[in-house]
Amino acid sequence: MEMSWPGTSECDSHYISPSPSQTLMEQALPELPPEVISEILSRLPVKPLLQFRCVSKPWCSLIDSPTFIKMHLHRSIQSRSNLSLIVTKLNSNIPNLLCSVHFDKLDIAFELYQPLTFEKRLDQVWNSCNGLLCLSFRDVEVVLWNPSTRKYLDLPLSPVEIPVAFCRMFVVFHGVGYDSVSDDYKVMRITQFNGGGFVHFESEVRVYSLKSDYWRKVGDFPHHLKLDQCTGLLVGRALHWSVNTKPMLVDGPRALIAFDLVSEEYRMVPLPECGAVDFHLKFAVLDGCLCVLHHYHKKGIDLWVMKEYGVKESWTKLIYIENFECN
């Protein structure tokens, strides 16, 4: 396409590429509009961002504002940046020492100073949501923790009311999620009381909302949770739990129950159909989609992904790994 240049001779020499010595640092930028400043800052990793809080008061209040935090989170999710793995360090003197591994540098692990250390020992890391981890100590003491900013919040205690008939044992499960409708973080707690032989069981479910700072009782969990796979999987706005549909059988048929954090209702998630029966089932989340691992004993694993949430036909076999052994 043609471009007309009425004053070609004049404007040729104005903006030639900068000379090497003219770096950005030598000169002050004239003040940029605040929306551009937040555009620029939202592209920074967390560490420089926290450092730049002390540049000036306006910068500090910008970086601390909920709007900016959401913008930064949104951009990180969109560009898949600021991702890290949280792993437990083995062979250390401190029990359950956690480490963080950045996705960009997978060979370097940082030890994390997690809020539950000595007098309160970390028992379990449940799951994470938008960079927040849900940790627990002695079943009912729950902490929401942001490892990037090292800030944490002790949730108020909510004692478990044990029904008279079930004084023998109970297990507690936690999971954190985000309710996009009311813009609120919620923690779900399922307490399952087991009678003899796992045949009789009851449950109590409470949901903590960060905005109201209160544990509220919701409808009972209608299925028997598997003890060996006790983490809640967060996909979209629902937490997913692996259950045993025939609790009297130790290795009974599995199902996946979703708890919608917005409507606070339960529903069953359809699983992929496959002919074989002799396999172990594991659930996970991959790229925001639910996935199922079929582990055939001494053969290999199938990885299925539910591409469209809640649609049974969208289950797709992604990969088969031969001779794969896992515990």
């Binding site: 640092m25 003040e31 592209r43 730049f52 540049v55 000036s56």
Partner: peptide, 28 residues
């Protein structure tokens, strides 16, 4: 705007608070 902001973000990533003050706030 995306490309430019990304560029400036890359530039200031490793800079000190002092540098940022001079550059963005025009502190003389």
């Amino acid at each position: 705007l995306d490309a430019l902001c990304q560029n400036v973000a890359e530039m200031i990533k490793g800079k000190s608070v002092h540098h940022i003050r001079i550059q963005f706030l025009g502190y003389q």
